[in-house]
Design a protein around this nucleic acid. Structure first.
Lengths: 193, 193
DNA sequence: CATGCTCCCTAACGATCGTTAGTTAGGAGC
DNA sequence: GCTCCTAACTAACGATCGTTAGGGAGCATG
């Protein structure tokens, strides 16, 4: 049901293997085996192994960008923005943990040019978090800290989700989004005592 | 100066390469080249490529355990314990970012038995964080949340440090430990409003 | 019935992988 | 001078890597 084209089925199988064993430790023949075909047959559908990685990374990057943009537009005021960004991020990750994991961990195996592109897009994405935190501090809603370091703290926690989250576990994506948004906002909010 | 034995020099060079390119994408000849020798010469010092990875992972695991144990013994009361654990963790990571990164990311390339050992030790280590959080909640110092999920949130943030921290950057290890301990404790503390 | 499209096959290419075998050069201790 | 140790070398092993070439089966459209 999920896979509409053969190409997409290949990317899904590759996602799963890349996540479990890493890009470098996954051979083209491994991917083919998961689809019950032979290695060389893949090349009727993809140009190269790296192309498959790139397709996955590129798609997930877009998903993060679209979700963050929607959250930014929908957030009523600055100190809700950070929570909205966290929720959006969790939603993208939980929507397809395998692909998200590949995006987060395997992009460094891309060619120089593509890796550079990913770095730039990632930096722009992280800027949204830094800006949201800076706005919250300026507004007095958040405690005084380095927005850049706080953003990194939160983003690494968010990016860690694919390393442990399983869709069939006890926590639903919605619950996880709520819990992480709470932890994130609280980590920036002055304590009561 | 750092390297006392040839064996250790190999592990240091391997750490650096494993961190930058990953274990699977690093060849034995790559490691040798970093030491200005030929690939097969390495086998006078190490039994296998995996042995090098294991030596690094095992040593770092011990460092984490020792640091956490010291923090546990030194922490005066429960709600200081979490901060102490965070500080200890940051100290271990910043002490050798390369090795820490290898420990965190490359242990899955170990053989089944060794991987299992790492998993168990890691689980015991994470239990310290879960227990500290649970104790803080029981004491009323922390807000009501799932200790396990909160611990995962914090540990993934901590484990993300090697992906971005550079010793020659603007933040000192001590500063980073303080900032992260603040963020961690605050993320579990009820907001003032 | 022919054409073309999708999908997969086997065989094989050169490169590189981790590793083994056997050897050599230099220095320390008797 | 002989022995032993450390540390490196070259040559080569079988396996596997990503990829290319060339061919064939099934099916839809004209």
């Amino acid at each position: 049901m999920v896979e509409t084209t053969r190409r997409r089925a290949i990317e899904d199988a590759a996602s799963d293997l890349f996540r479990r064993n890493g890009y470098a430790a996954t051979s083209v023949r491994d991917i083919a085996r998961a689809l019950d075909i032979r290695g060389p047959s893949l090349y009727a559908h993809v140009a190269s192994k790296e192309d498959v990685l790139w397709a996955i990374v590129d798609r997930v990057a877009s998903r993060f960008e679209i979700a963050a943009e929607a959250a930014t537009l929908a957030a009523p005021d600055p100190d809700d923005l950070l929570g909205a960004l966290v929720r959006a991020h969790v939603a993208v990750v939980t929507d397809d943990v395998g692909e998200a994991s590949v995006f987060i961990h395997e992009w460094r195996h891309l060619s120089d040019q593509r890796r550079q592109t990913v770095l730039e897009r990632r930096d722009a994405y992280e800027d949204r978090f830094r800006a949201a935190i800076a706005a919250g501090i300026a507004e007095g809603a958040f405690a005084l800290t380095d927005p850049s370091l706080a953003a990194t703290f939160l983003l690494t926690a968010l990016n860690g989700i694919p390393t442990w989250y399983r869709p069939d576990g006890p926590t639903s994506p919605a619950q996880l989004a709520d819990l992480y948004a709470d932890l994130a906002v609280r980590s920036l909010t002055e304590a009561s005592r």
